[in-house]
Design a binder for these strands. Structure first.
Lengths: 116, 116
DNA sequence: CTGTATCCCTTTAGATACTG
DNA sequence: CAGTATCTAAAGGGATACAG
């Protein structure tokens, strides 16, 4: 959400400041199962360019949601993983996925059940 | 998420297509408590211009998440409310708000409890 | 392999004035 | 009050080439 923070004390807005970026939920979703290398993430999200993927990863790293580990090898190898803070988002990520499934199968007023 | 749909069958991406817009979660959050008039929404989200607010409301309406009711009065009155489909998002909206609160108070590995 | 550096076009969004 | 129209500035994002 970037620049102006209307009600910076609103929890929803604070959360969105971290995960509201165009690709961040998807990236976090990819990383929620395994730590992944740069190329692995890119394969799973083919529509994102390397440039933009790099930018998003840098922001997620700066916000403490993911961790970047660089191995001194040739060819180079870099691995991204959720931090503990990032892992605390997993239920929310699962919820986002679960919502669509639930709505498809049930009446839309139904309470959505969080997957375990 | 607009143009290219890499894995359109991914539930997370489908959900984000509906609520991933820059202001949509905030707007839905405002409407989750009451139906609101255009100006009331704008007051609660001062940083969004009328033009952009209009655009976002139109998209939410087109996606069936909100309902626009125009009263034939002077001065004009228009009220926006969540549809049943939109209401099915309320737990997710609450979850987004709850996450930040939970993380502040607890260890980041803790499972977040959905508010009732 | 994992990026960075440019270039350049597209999209977004603010300001302002105007309408029913 | 609730928008629409227009113009413009800024940000976003793709393509390509290059670097460590």
């Amino acid at each position: 959400m970037g620049n102006n923070l209307y009600h910076a004390d609103c929890p929803a807005i604070e959360t969105l400041a971290l995960i509201g970026g165009r690709w961040k939920v998807i990236i976090l979703h990819v990383l929620s199962k395994h730590a992944r290398r740069f190329g692995e993430i890119n394969v799973r999200i083919p529509s994102i360019s390397r440039k933009v993927l790099t930018e998003q990863l840098r922001e997620l790293e700066a916000d403490g949601l993911i961790n970047r580990k660089q191995y001194k090898e040739h060819p180079q190898k870099v691995e991204y993983a959720l931090t503990d803070f990032g892992k605390s988002l997993c239920p929310l990520l699962a919820y986002i996925s679960a919502w669509k499934k639930n709505v498809e199968g049930n009446s839309s007023q139904d309470i959505i059940q969080l997957p375990d």
